[in-house]
Structures are given as structure tokens and as C-alpha cells.
Design a protein around this nucleic acid. Structure first.
Length: 248
DNA sequence: GTGGATCCTAAGTT
DNA sequence: AAACTTAGGATCC
């Protein structure tokens, strides 16, 4: 992981993990929604992380049309092959309970996530060896954009929501869903509501009485309904939908 | 119960 | 708008 400040300092770790989020307050607000009120006993405790924008961007580009075990594998490969080893790391964190619905934990303790410069310098063949498939080109192209100074994620972070979203969507491999993930998990824009297949199914089933809808319509609906807590609502719906789908 | 071949699947984007 | 890489999971011998 790349930290915003002094590596591993408790304050920045807490920020990264979303540990300072007022979860009780957030969840009691969400519980005004009947669907979420019923869901919360099963999903309580979700915190939205504040990820490094670059790591977040790459991770979610890799996530498209992919499955979670393989996403983990790819991120781990990237870190091991192109990142820097972190000396003197304890194993703290690896045995921790998984924070589902959140991209944390994809990068194993032991290596930093590679910088844009490190990935820009990687050969296409070496990137392919990270099991990225056709996404390898997206990762390399984005790395070059940042390394060359043509793309400034910190600048985008400061733009108004819609402008930042539009700028992200310009990037190779980034569509609306991935852009919303970066807005939510890296830029801390709580009004972002990433619509993936799970969330779409959940909203259609639990709010639209089974009527098919478009991701665009769902985003508009979510913004109206949940406002600045849309991202949190999305996480609870995502986790709830996935838990329900598993045989148990 | 185990091991391997085969088929299907997957946090969307182009 | 059909096609996309490829490891993992499911199913079936």
C-alpha cells in the first residue's frame, strides 16, 4: 500500500481503514430505509476505506469482468513483481476478519503497491504474467499517463463530483462503475454509488419489485434516496446480496 | 474420497 | 454491441 503520509503511522492507518467513520450514526441513518433496516443486522460494521487513488484505480480496472480470487491474485503478482518489499513488517492484518465489499486486503502485507513509474517501466510481457489478461494494456497505458505527467489524480480529486467522474471515465479501462469506485473509495465522495451486477440485482429485487432497470437509472435513484450516504448504502446492499447468494 | 478433464463463470468496458 | 483474457470454481467422470 502507499500511504498518504508517514508510512504506517497510526493516524494514517486509521484514515486508510475508515476507522474514524461514525458508523453508529451512519447506520442509524441508513436504518430509516426499510430494506436496509432489515439488512443491517447481517451487514453491520462496514467501513468505507480511504484508499490511495492510484492503487484504487488500478485495482478496480482489474476488477472489471473478473472474479475476486483472481483480482487478488493479479494485485499480489503486481506487488511482488513490481512493488518494493516492506522491511520489518509483522503479519498483523493478514489474519484479520475480511472487510467485505472493500478492496482492502487485495494487496498482501509485504510489498508496496507499485507506483505509476514502476508499472510504466514494466514490459508488456511482464504485465501479462500477472494474469491481467486484456487489462494489462489498460494498466500500462494509465501508468504512462501518470508517469508522464499527463494525468494528475490529485488534481482530479479536487474537482467537483461530475467533473472528476468525467475525467476518470476518459481513462482506458475506466467506465462508470470503476469511476464511481474511485470516487467513493479513494476520493471519499460518499454520494458515489457504484452499480455492479450485484447491486443492480439487489436494487431491482428489493426496491423495484423485480423490474429490470439500467445502472444509470439506479444511480439517479440512489442519489435521491440516500444522498451523501449512497456509498454506504451501496456497500450494505452489495454485501447483503453476496451473502444471500452463497449456500448457507 | 481423490484427481483430472471439461465447461462455465466473473466488482464491466470497449 | 459482440467480444474480451484467464484463473478459479463447479460438475462429472
Amino acid at each position: 500500500m502507499r500511504w498518504h503520509g508517514p508510512a504506517g503511522s497510526p493516524a494514517h492507518l486509521a484514515l486508510h481503514l475508515g476507522a474514524r467513520e461514525p458508523l453508529a450514526e451512519i447506520e442509524s441513518a441508513l436504518a430509516r430505509d426499510p430494506v436496509l433496516r432489515q439488512m443491517l443486522p447481517h451487514t453491520s460494521g462496514i467501513a468505507i476505506m480511504r484508499q490511495d487513488p492510484w492503487e484504487c484505480l488500478v485495482s478496480y480496472v482489474i476488477s472489471a469482468f473478473n472474479n475476486i480470487p483472481k483480482i487478488r491474485l493479479s494485485v499480489e503478482h503486481l506487488a511482488r513483481r513490481f512493488g518494493e518489499s516492506i522491511p520489518n513488517t509483522s503479519d498483523a492484518g493478514s489474519g484479520d476478519a475480511t472487510r467485505e465489499g472493500i478492496d482492502g486486503g487485495h494487496n498482501p502485507v509485504g510489498w508496496t503497491f507499485p507506483s505509476p513509474e514502476q508499472l510504466a517501466a514494466a514490459s508488456p510481457a511482464a504485465l501479462r504474467a500477472c494474469a491481467l489478461g486484456y487489462r494489462a494494456r489498460y494498466v500500462r497505458d494509465m501508468a504512462r499517463l501518470v508517469a508522464d505527467g499527463r494525468l494528475d489524480l490529485a488534481r482530479i480529486a479536487g474537482l467537483p463530483f461530475d467533473e472528476a467522474r468525467a475525467a476518470l471515465i476518459e481513462l482506458p479501462g475506466v467506465g462508470e462503475k470503476v469511476a464511481d469506485c474511485v470516487l467513493l473509495f479513494a476520493f471519499g465522495r460518499g454520494e458515489a454509488f457504484p452499480v455492479d451486477v450485484w447491486v443492480q440485482r439487489a436494487v431491482e429485487r428489493w426496491y423495484f419489485s423485480g423490474r429490470p432497470t439500467t445502472p444509470r437509472a439506479i444511480r439517479g435513484w440512489a442519489k435521491d434516496r440516500f444522498g451523501p450516504l449512497a456509498g454506504y448504502a451501496q456497500q450494505h446492499l452489495f454485501v447483503g446480496a453476496r451473502r444471500r447468494s452463497r449456500t448457507s
